[in-house]
Each structure stands twice: as structure tokens, then as C-alpha cells.
Amino acid sequence: MTHTPTPSLLEELPGDLLIWVLIISELLVFGAGFTAFLSVRLTDPVGFAEAQTHLHRVGAAINTIVLISSGFLAALALKWRNATRRVAARLALIGAALLGVAFLVIKWIEYADKAAQGITYETHPFFMFYYLLTGFHAAHVIAGVLVLLLIAWRDSPENIETGAAFWHMVDLVWVLLFPVVYLLA
């Protein structure tokens, strides 16, 4: 009778261990940012609520749809690559990257609107956190788009799994950032 050994905890983790170290590190950094944001809000809840009315909730809600759809395409790409559907996987990754660019365009419009209103990071502590958290996240989106294009080119299943995991982390951060910064008045 053959005996199949039970996988260790680390072997159970999907993908490369180092990408999980990165994901956990990023979640901790953003988590600290959200905690700091809501902690400072305790000192001026009325000011934070007023400042939040200047944000573009509709644009941010559209961006949520854009990112979760982009994440879906990235996850599909891995599934298709594992099924040796390389062309479909590459197209899905390019589609995911294009949606990432769409996210950045909407974010750019949002920032331009703030600039037109004369709102800077010095206007109120709310906006300091707003620019810090959304700007840091947007920087990750830029990096993620480049990673998606890179793995569409060098499309081994391992590369796609690792690159897509980074993109899902960006997605995961956004679904927490959106309610904290845009919705919790």
C-alpha cells in the first residue's frame, strides 16, 4: 500500500513563498496606514467627514469594478496557462494590464479634479492620508501593470502565478482602501 505524505504548512501555500512574504509585508504596511488614518480621524471627525465630500466616490466605485475584473482576468490567465492555452492566457494578461491602465486614468482624473479645486496634501490631514494611501497604491498599480506585461511575455506557469499573485495583492488592498478612505464618513 502506498502512503502519500501530508504536505507541510509551507508546501500547502500556493505559489512561491517569497511572493507571500511580499504580500504579507504590503498588507501590514497598508494596514498600518489605514489604522493611522482612522486614528487621526478620532481627533477631527467633522473635518474628516467634510473633507471626504470632496472625493469622487463614483470614480472610485468604477475603479473597484475595474480592478476586480482585472484580477479575474489575471486569475483566468493562470488557469488557461496551466491548461496549455498560452495565447488565451497572454491575451487575458494583456487585458488585465489594460484594465490596470484604465484604473490609473480614472485615478489621474480624480487627482486633476482635486488640483483644480486647489486641494493639496496640506489642505487637511485627511488629504495628506488620501494622497499618501491612494498614491502609494497607484504606484503599486503601475508596478503591477508592468509585471502583468512582463509575465505575458515570459509566460511560464510559475511566472504567471507569481505575477498574478502580486496583482491580486494590489486588488486586495484596494477593496479595503476604498471603504476606509472613500466611504466611512
Partner: peptide
């Protein structure tokens, strides 16, 4: 938001296959 995060972890990041994690 918590529900969305759980779905991303389980299905997009594949933790559905790693129940302990």
C-alpha cells in the same frame, strides 16, 4: 469589504486549496 477580501484570498490567490493558511 471583509467578504470581498476573503473571496480574493480564497479564489484569486488560491488559498481555497490551502485551508490552514
Amino acid at each position: 469589504a471583509l467578504m470581498k477580501a476573503r473571496i480574493i484570498l480564497a479564489r484569486y490567490l488560491g488559498l481555497a486549496e490551502a485551508p490552514s493558511w
